[in-house]
Amino acid sequence: MAPKKIVLRFGADISGNPVIYRLVKDYDLMVNIVKANVNPQKEGTLVLELTGEKYDQGLEFLRRQGVSVQALTREVVRNGDRCTMCGACTAICPTGALFIERPGMEVRFDGDNCVVCQLCVKACPVRAMEVRL
């Protein structure tokens, strides 16, 4: 079975729990961590590749723990013509992929750090962050 890529997001209350260990131990899943990030507010983002029979039960378990689970099938890009460099996305982006360069206060987008959580897509007031299939 081909591995499936998913994005997990969890709050500070869960950052300390050994959820990955439980996926392996209780659900017999093979886990490959593609990207991992815990920001200063202790909010975590993980991009995983998962393989195994109990894939659906594993995701169900994660959701029960309060983890948000999303399929990673897309890419988020910035429409440079539309972006005003306001910065409204920068405290929303959990991984720092959208960040302000000081002292000029220009907003930069580093796609390598983007985990496609899509929080910026709705938070951007001028809809400059776009989902590509």
Binding site: C86, G87, A88, I100, R102, M105, P125
Partner: peptide, 22 residues
């Protein structure tokens, strides 16, 4: 503009809604 302030003794990340470059 430094990116963080202290509120109620906690460090809080800041972000503008108004575009300084513009």
């Amino acid at each position: 503009k430094s990116g963080k302030i202290t509120v109620n003794g906690r460090e809080v990340p800041t972000a503008p809604l108004s575009s300084y470059p513009r």
